[in-house]
């Protein structure tokens, strides 16, 4: 798959919540080829500290306008530098990178499960998936966050006609508890389902187990530190079971970030 290194033009920093922004970038080659679950490596300025580029999942892409967007919250030097980029200035962007979600066409219900900051790639997946659904296929969105002001994507999913269920750690909105509890409940209903999840690794581990127990196909987008994002450094290792037997470390940035849940070995 072709990857592009471009100077992407900042179109807008759209405030979505306190300290949280959607950054819209003009970069036609990336906007035209990105798939849901893929990410870009961004570099606001050529600094030595911070040194690495940072990976951002693609939240939205509009091939016609040549724009795509990512979601960021301002915490630390890197995101502060990003937030200070004026409209019209450029950010180095490398992408689209990694594997993507593959809709399970036999499922009657597509359950997208987001925890913490995991919503953006699922918003992109929902936007691409919704128009392709058959009349008997449903879209569900389960989202968990620490507090209600950290929830992302709820309105988007509602607008797409999805069944939305919310969990917060403090009970400030929706169910008080974990999003994985909502998944357990949802899977009680005997509808052929497929699960697509993104969030912190401990959450993904539970999601994977719940799906395995019920024989539900599940794809997860994993998190790993990424010095390069393009498959060279081997820093983003994820332990996987190989089909031919044995285990190996695969790259979250190249074979991932989206893996079949049963492939990943959690330790």
């Amino acid at each position: 798959m072709q990857r592009y290194e471009v100077a992407a033009t900042v179109v807008e920093h759209q405030r979505r919540a306190p300290n949280q922004y959607e950054l819209i970038l003009h970069a036609p080659p990336i906007a035209q080829t990105a798939m849901p679950g893929q990410f870009v490596m961004l570099r606001p300025l050529p600094t030595h500290a911070p040194l690495w580029r940072r990976p951002y999942s693609i939240l939205r892409a509009n091939p016609d306008k040549g724009v795509f967007s990512v979601f960021y919250s301002v915490q630390g030097t890197f995101t502060e530098l990003l937030s200070l980029k004026p409209i019209g200035s450029t950010v180095q962007a490398l992408g689209p990178l990694g594997s993507y979600f593959q809709p399970v066409r036999t499922a009657k219900r597509h359950i997208l499960v987001a925890g913490g900051t995991g919503a953006p790639p699922l918003c992109f997946l929902a936007a691409r998936l919704a128009p392709t659904l058959q009349p008997d296929e449903r879209l569900w969105f389960l989202i968990g966050a620490r507090r209600s002001d950290l929830l992302v994507g709820v309105d988007e999913f509602r607008a797409l006609g999805a069944e939305v269920r919310i969990a917060t750690d403090d009970g400030s909105r929706g169910y008080k508890g974990y999003v994985t509890d909502l998944l357990q409940q949802a899977l009680e209903e005997p509808i052929p389902s497929a699960v697509y999840a993104c969030g912190p690794n401990p959450m993904l581990q539970v999601v994977s187990r719940v799906c395995r127990e019920r024989g539900v196909p599940c794809q997860i987008s994993v998190d790993a530190p990424m010095p390069c994002g393009i498959g060279v450094c081997l820093g983003c290792a994820v332990k996987v079971a190989l089909p031919e037997g044995g285990v190996w470390y695969k790259r979250a940035c190249a074979e991932g970030p989206v893996f079949r849940a049963e492939e990943v070995i959690w330790e």
Partner: peptide, 17 residues
């Protein structure tokens, strides 16, 4: 196979691997 993760960390103007 290499070492278990985490295998890399960013440090001031550098990284450990």
């Amino acid at each position: 196979m290499g070492n278990p993760p985490p295998r890399v960390v960013e440090t001031p103007a550098g990284m450990l691997n």
